[in-house]
Write a protein that binds this DNA or RNA. Sequence first.
DNA 1: TCAAGGTGGTAATACGAATTACCACCTTGA
DNA 2: TCAAGGTGGTAATTCGTATTACCACCTTGA
Lengths: 352, 352
Amino acid sequence: MTGPRRRVTQQDIARICGVSQTTVSLVLNNRLDAGVRIASETRERVLEAIAETGYVADPVARRMVARRNRIIGVFTYEAVFPSGTRDFYQPFLAGIEDSAEQLGCDLLLLTSAPVVEGRRRIFHEGNRFRLADGCILLGRETDRGELARLVAEGYPFVSVGRRADTGGPVPYVGADYPGAVAELVAQAVEMGHRRLAYLGSGSHTESRGDRRDGFTAALAATGAAGPVLAGETAELVARLPELVADGVTALFVEDPADCQQLADRLAELGHPVPAAISTVALGDPPPDSVWGYPHPPATADIDFTGFRIPRWEMGRQAMEVLSALLEEKSTEPQRLLRCAGHRGASLAPPPR
Amino acid sequence: MTGPRRRVTQQDIARICGVSQTTVSLVLNNRLDAGVRIASETRERVLEAIAETGYVADPVARRMVARRNRIIGVFTYEAVFPSGTRDFYQPFLAGIEDSAEQLGCDLLLLTSAPVVEGRRRIFHEGNRFRLADGCILLGRETDRGELARLVAEGYPFVSVGRRADTGGPVPYVGADYPGAVAELVAQAVEMGHRRLAYLGSGSHTESRGDRRDGFTAALAATGAAGPVLAGETAELVARLPELVADGVTALFVEDPADCQQLADRLAELGHPVPAAISTVALGDPPPDSVWGYPHPPATADIDFTGFRIPRWEMGRQAMEVLSALLEEKSTEPQRLLRCAGHRGASLAPPPR
DNA sequence: TCAAGGTGGTAATACGAATTACCACCTTGA
DNA sequence: TCAAGGTGGTAATTCGTATTACCACCTTGA
C-alpha cells in the first residue's frame, strides 16, 4: 500500500514528463484553440503519465480559478427537528434536487445555521450562505428583515412561496392561491351556494393572506357573500353554530388540517358534510409521517374537495429561476404556479 | 439595485480599513498567538467592516490552504429519480442532518455526479466530492472499484451500511443483520419450528449476504435445518408448494416487500400465515410514498414479524465516525448497530 | 548612546489549476 | 539576408486565504 500519499498534482505530471505545468494543463483541457499547439508526441507522453498516476484535477483549485462553485445553498427557515415538519420540505426538495441534477449543481443544506428563538437565522456571526453561488429559501414563514438584507446586498436567491417585496422585488416561485380559491368559490356558487364563510387563522403571512384575499375577491366577482372568520382551530370550531344560524352553506377552510375536526363537529351538530354543509380545503395537507414510517392521516373519513399545491414543480422552477439569475439570463423572477383542483366529496349543492 | 456585484474579499476589507490583507486574515482568525499582535482599535475597525459588508471567507480558497470546510459531502449511489427511492434515504438523511447540525457542519448533496448506467459515479471527470472535508456514502449497493480507490487515496469517508474491505478497511456504520436474523431463528426454533427456509434474491451485496449468512449460521447453531432459495420474487412464489411439501414451517424472507405476496399465495394454496406456516420479514420495508403523499402499503393485511433497521441512528453515527476520522480522534470505524426485533403476527408455533 | 526588547504591522509565499503573454527556434520567400 | 509567419513550448500571473519571516518604530536601562 502506498499509504496516505499526497495528491498527485499537475506539477508532478510535469516533472515526470519533463515539461511545464502549463503544458500539462493544456493537454488536460484539450485546448485546440488556434494559438495553442502541443506536439502530439508530447501530448501522448503527458496523457500516459496521467493515466499511470491516476491524476484527477483538484476541483477546489479549479473552482478557485473559475470563481463559481456550482453549489446552490438550500436554507430551511424552520428548525427541521424535532417536529414532523421534515416531510413538509420533502416534495420541494425533490423538485430542487431534480433540477440541480440537470444543471450539474450540488446542493448545500445549510444545516449549520444556528437556531434562535425556534428558527434558523440566515445572518449571524460566521454565516455561511455565501458558500454557495446562490440560495433557495424554503419555509412557511420568512424573516422580512433578512429578506430585505439579501435583496439589498444583491445576493442571488429565490424564495419558494410568494414573498412581498422588501425594498426591492423578491424572486419567488409560489402557488397561485387566489386563482385556486377563486375556482373553488366559482364552483360552489355554480352549485347554488350563496352564503360562504372563510375560516382562517388571521395570519398575515403571504400564503394565508393570498388565500383570504382570493376568497373575498372571488366573492365580489361572483356576487356571493359571507363572513371571514379568524382564529385558532378551537375557536373556529366553537363558532360553527353561529355560521349555521347565519345561513352559511359552504366553509372555505384556510388550513386543510382543520377540515376533519370541523366536519366532525358539524356532524355532532346535526349538519353532516356535505349533505347539510359543504367544506372546502384550501390546499392539501402536507404529508405526515414519522421518520419515513407513514401512518394514516389522523381520521380522514372524508375526501375533502380542495386543490393540490404543486410542491415538486415549485422546487424545480425555483432552481430554474436561480440558475437564470446566476447566468444573468433574463427570466420571469416572480412566478405563481397553478394549483390543480381536487374534486373530492366534501363540496355538494346546498340543501334546498 | 446594486446589480450582480463581485464577492467581497479580504482584499476589499483591507482597502476599506487601510490595512493589509494579512491583517484582515489575522483578525478574522483571531490569532492571539504570541508573535502576532493587532491593536484592538484596528481589530475593531476590521470587524466592523466585515460586519458591514457581510464578508464570509471563500470556502474554496480556504480549502486550498487549510484542509477544512466544515462541509460534509453526502453521496447517494442510486439515482434518486424517477423511482420512489427518495424515501429510502430519508431516515438516514434525517440522522445525518441531526448530527451535522450539532457539529456545525453543512451538508453537500452531491447531486452533480453524472449518472452512468443507472447509477451515479463518484469518480468522473471533474468529480467534486473533494469539495467536502469528507463524505458519507449512502446506497444499497456500492461500486467496489470506487470504494477501493477512496480507500487507497486516503480520502475520509464513511459508508452507511457494512461494506467488505477493499484493499484496506472500509469505515462503515451498518445494521447487525446476522444478529437480528439469528434472534428470529432462535425464536422460531423455540416455538417448535425445525425446518426453516430462506427466500432470497441470491444477490451478493453485503446487506443481502449478511442476512443469508446469519441465517445459515443460526441454523447450524440451533440445530435446525432447511433450504436456502435464491430467485426473483415470482420465482420464489412459484416454489412455495415445493417448500410446503418439503415440510418447511417457517419462511425467512430476505426482502420484506415480498412477504405479502408470498402470504397471499400461501393462503391460496390453503396454508394461511401464520396458522399453517410462519413468515418472517428480514427487515422493515422502506416507506413508500409518492412525493410525500403517503398511500397505504400495497395490501398490508398482515403485521409481519421481523426487525427494525435503525436507519436514523445509522445516519447519525456515520456522521459521528466521519467527524472522528477528520479530527483524527480514535474511534471504532466499523460499527454494526443492533436491530430491534419487531414482534408481529406472522410468526407462530408450527401446526402440530 | 546604543543594544535589548516590545509593538504593530506588512511583504512574500504557498496551495493547484487556468490563462495570458511572450520567447526561441525554424522555415520560407523575395 | 532578413522580415514574415509558423511551431512548440514556458514564465508569470490570477483566483482568495493562511502563514511565515521580517521590518520599522518606540521605549527602556545601563
